[in-house]
Design a protein around this nucleic acid. Structure first.
Lengths: 103, 103
DNA sequence: TATAGTTAGTTACATAAAGTAAGTAACATA
DNA sequence: TATGTTACTTACTTTATGTAACTAACTATA
């Protein structure tokens, strides 16, 4: 593997290209949401959602907030770093609008 | 799985989120290239590169051209549809520049 | 003629990632 | 005591990817 491609870009893609990551962030752009909301909104399995949210937290893109209610309520929201992906996702959205046909 | 998210967007992500797809397109934005050039530039295995190029051809994003030389030379290039992903990839690039730290 | 070299793949097999469905902790309510 | 809730985790299956050897269709070299 040469080093022809920018390592920051490759790092970014290694995050974004993991299955579900982009959809999770896209979903959280609507506002903070809880585990089961994200799960049912995008159709990801609990096992993988749990994994991804931990990864995204570790990357500083998602924040996890515990509300001590009963039953416990946990909210996931985007940090600035997470939120700043919005323009990129919007570009993908507008590409999709132009080039993907409705099935 | 609800249908809260735009199906075109989901389709777009199902293409882009496959491992290597974005890097392959990014690489081809530099100009048409042959199999082994892409392979060594981004470090993808031949097995997967072959699979991805077929997918991208089927999606109308990549064009495969055979030059009858010896040994045979095959060039892969972007179609308009493939090329039009450039703004999205540029957005990811600039996000990476801002938010990813050099290791 | 036999041997080796070229590109663009394919094949067989091993490992890693994701899907599925059941289980758990820590409560509250009926 | 049994049931329900949320936010996960665990065990197991299926799918995706990595690795490395192999093939087709030539040409060049010994």
């Amino acid at each position: 593997m040469d080093q022809t491609i920018c390592p920051k870009f490759e790092k970014a893609l290694s995050i974004m290209n993991k299955r579900w990551t982009s959809l999770i962030i896209f979903q959280l752009l609507e506002g903070s949401q809880r585990f089961c909301e994200i799960e049912s909104a995008i159709g990801v399995s609990g096992r993988v959602l749990s994994e991804r949210l931990k990864d995204l937290e570790k990357e500083g893109m998602v924040k996890r907030t515990v509300h001590d209610e009963t039953p416990v309520r946990i909210e996931y929201s985007l940090t600035d770093k997470g939120h700043s992906l919005k323009p990129a996702l919007n570009q993908i959205q507008s590409w999709a609008d132009q080039w993907i046909e409705a099935e």
